[in-house]
Design a protein around this nucleic acid. Structure first.
Lengths: 343, 343
DNA sequence: CTGTTAGCGCTTTCAT
DNA sequence: ATGAAAGCGCTAACAG
């Protein structure tokens, strides 16, 4: 059994449904039938076919099937990138659900593309439906273009011209989180992040504002920095330099919060003693740092799974939903907000 | 321009190369020519065709093209999962290079699959070549099976029956890292991780052993735990309970190291004073914890990019390499090993 | 239960 | 520079 395959580079590229049919002494229709498993085939012929398949090492050509069935049996997913746990988890959730639905997934990362529109157009060529993460990098035009041809769902993005949208809840949890911080008696809380970078951050800021309003407090203007470690460190430095005054920082996500908190600590500041810091996302690091980072957990995998599921439903002919779907989030209180450590 | 698309559900599913040709008053061959851009077409007809494409919202059917050109123009990538930065970075590197080569990428995560073999077979159906991460989850059989039909490269796995292999260097850096720890005077260093879980860990352990040998020291048996936070914490607890005695821990990866270090610290142990802890991978968290985790950086993205590149070369007819390709790694010294903090 | 046959939509000679 | 036509490999009626 071991040595009979003499050529190491066999790569019997040949092997079509015809050669299998020949080899088994049946018609191509029969081969197709046993491979699809739908129709009933006599057990004996079935075995003959399977043997031929095995013998020839037949691998069906997906493209031919797709052409015949008029379905790609694949979903597209467009994400900005994969650094940090957020998008990776989204992808895992998406992949898992797509797998259950027997859909392949073809992935496009926009940050690695020079011509995004072309990449997306090319993607549309080989999938039945597309989920795009609603980053500003993906212009509304692209989405609109696609939407006319294929079902599209936008994840955590603007409700583009009617494309179906799904997102995690932001406003309420942000209000709750900000309220929690204010409840520790902080009165100079700053929001760090750019509300214009998308609806997620915009709603988190809105929650921050709402929490202040409810208490008759003034909400400060947001400190507009991007969601990167580098920008976080830079902001922290400006804070240390006295450019800002604050006793609490509500950061747009954990990566920002972590880089800020660490920079502050390394400069001798006490967190949360001198200043509280809270984030958003509950990434792994947030559990490990001391003090543990108070943050908000999003059901990221579920978001991905829901996207895959909706895509499939849309492909199956279900009507699009007009209303955005919203998944609940959860406040995770650790000690960077001023609460006593609990581990 | 805004309201003329009356039906919100246009989805002009129709639009084939025929309808475009009709609409433009040319033959399908001409349409194909302007869309491929290869052959020269009169500028006027070119414009007519483009107009028709625009008008009809024509999106070519990838499957039909694939069938005609006998290429999928897609690469498959099989990864265990995406939690933690390692696989995500690998994927980013792979995707970026594949994008440059104009190859789509279709992704399969094995942890979400109940029938992995079927998933991989199905994958083979729609891509020209496949890169699989060499986890033990992917049986050698599956790889062997594939390899007969499509080019396969194995990333960081056993040199399966001749499938091309690429990996990051482990042995040398592990020897260096272990040597560094021993250089701090530690004499009860334990290796935490299971060498049987694959060649990566096996070689790291081998480096640990080599470093001891070189100094005439005895290397201890590895403490066989899996690469998860949970197992790390459990091991740390057993250590605290006195089940093991050690003044240094060389962990198979950062996640393990981090969970162990944190558990130890929370129990009052001083790292590195009482016990040194080092990891492998240089994940983000390792920069943020205190003390900073001494570890080894792997060129993970490059690994992914190299895989995509080799896949493309193999598809283009280049001969497979018999020798495994190895990328260099780099020791990252912070302070968990006993070195003074430097930030 | 099995075979025949007509496409699926695109690329690519081969003519013109 | 353009058109006609022959497939690419598979599925799905339709007959038998």
């Amino acid at each position: 059994m071991a040595k009979q395959q003499a050529s190491p580079e066999a790569k019997s590229a040949g092997a079509t449904i015809y050669s299998v049919a020949d080899h088994a002494g049946v018609s191509i229709a029969t081969v197709s039938r046993v491979l699809q498993g739908a129709t009933v085939v006599a057990e004996t012929t079935r075995q003959k076919v399977l043997a031929a398949v095995e013998e020839l090492g037949y691998v069906p050509l997906g493209a031919a099937r797709s052409l015949a069935v008029r379905h790609h049996e694949a979903h597209g997913l467009v994400l900005p990138e994969l650094s940090g746990p957020y998008y990776a988890e989204l992808l895992m959730g998406f992949e898992a659900r797509a797998a259950e639905l027997a859909q392949s997934i073809v992935l496009v990362l926009t940050n690695s593309r020079t011509d995004l529109a072309a990449a997306v157009r090319q993607l549309a060529t080989r999938v039945d439906a597309i989920a795009v993460f609603g980053s500003p990098a993906i212009s509304a035009d692209v989405v609109r273009l696609l939407r006319a041809k294929k079902p599209v769902v936008v994840i955590a993005g603007e409700p583009h011209d009617g494309a179906e949208t799904i997102a995690a809840e932001n406003l309420g949890s942000a209000r709750e989180l900000a309220g929690h911080v204010l409840g520790h008696g902080r009165r100079r809380a700053l929001f760090v992040g750019d509300p214009d970078s998308g609806p997620d951050i915009r709603n988190r800021y809105a929650g921050y504002v709402a929490a202040h309003r409810e208490r008759g407090l003034d909400a400060a203007e947001p400190v507009r920095v991007s969601l990167s470690e580098a920008d976080g460190a830079a902001f922290a430095q400006r804070l240390l330099d006295g450019e800002y005054e604050a006793d609490a920082l509500m950061c747009a996500n954990d990566e920002l919060a972590l880089s800020i908190m660490t920079t502050l600590q390394d400069a001798g500041r006490d967190v949360p003693g001198d200043i509280a810091v809270v984030g958003w996302d509950d990434v792994m690091t947030s559990r490990y740092v001391r003090p543990g980072l108070t943050t908000v957990r999003q059901p990221v995998q579920e978001l991905g799974a829901l996207a895959a599921n909706r895509l499939h439903e849309l492909v199956s002919g279900e009507p699009p939903r007009s209303q955005a779907q919203m998944l609940p989030t959860q406040l995770v209180v650790r000690s960077s907000c001023g609460c006593p450590p609990t581990h």
